[in-house]
Amino acid sequence: MIKRNLGDRILVSFFWISGLFILLVLVAILAYLIWRGGAFINIDFLLGSPEGYPLGSEGGILPAIKGTLWLILLALIFSIIPGLATAVYLSEYGRNKRLTEAVNVLVQSMMGIPSIVVGLFVYALCVVRLGWGISLLAGGVALGLMVFPVIVVSSRNALLAVDDNYRLVARALGVSESYIFWRVILPRAVPGILAGILLALGYAAGATAPIMVTATAIIASSSGVLLEPVMALPYHLYILFNEHMSLDNAYATALVLVLMLVFINALALWLHSIQERNNA
């Protein structure tokens, strides 16, 4: 009896430890980055250009921030309309069960494609075949492809989460299907869809592998010219560390990136909770 109690206690402590470990990981990452990088973040760092020799060992990260914003913008332009249309199809028009199932599986599998393979595909197609070269546009396409399934799945779930009774009542009142969709279903799914788009945005902002083969340069002005290479925050971090340019700047860049993404994710979670409350 006593032996069993001991075993039980060890097991329960293990469950507690592994639960608290998750909290510890996040706290440790944030605390460490703030400790090592917090002091180096100031206006000059955020709004300055890379300086020093080698270029980037001193100075700021403005071009990297700009480049990341451009890349996200393009990724969203490329992925939002196809993503939403596919989600609407899956939730509203997917009467053909077989086909819906197939589209679902394909999209789900697409979500699993390693980001470097997306980069490989876009490199061959856009950078080489279409002759765009390493460019902002190619990076936007790569990130768009990468976040497309994220947008589909989250928007589909948001649309499916809307209570079916609304649909039934509207139909009983003789309202047309498109009216039901636009005026009844869609407004209730908007927070969830926005949350999904934010999630996709964060995913695109942090991705390194697909853009390092399609879009980025170590130093670029990132002025938004479509066929020129850009700098981007995650790639800049990689270069700062890997080329031994500046460990301090690397910590500061990592902190900026993580704070940005934690903020985006928190916003997405908040919108998601609104969606759940709306349809509870």
């Binding site: 639960g19 998750i22 909290l23 990981v25 996040l26 990452i29 460490y32 980055l33 964060g202 995913y203 902002a205 942090g206 991705a207 390194t208 592998a209 995650p234 790639y235 971090l237 990689y238 560390f241 460990l247 690397a250 910590y251 990592a254 990136l257 993580v258 993404l261 934690v262 985006i264 994710n265 928190a266 997405a268 979670l269």
Partner: peptide, 26 residues
């Protein structure tokens, strides 16, 4: 506590892989 851990899991998936790689290497 579960309500705290759940969003933390989301935050952890949101941290970019390059940051994990960087922290791991550094």
């Amino acid at each position: 506590l579960a309500a705290v851990i759940r969003p933390v899991l989301n935050m952890l998936t949101g941290i970019p892989s390059v940051v994990y790689g960087f922290l791991g290497a550094a």
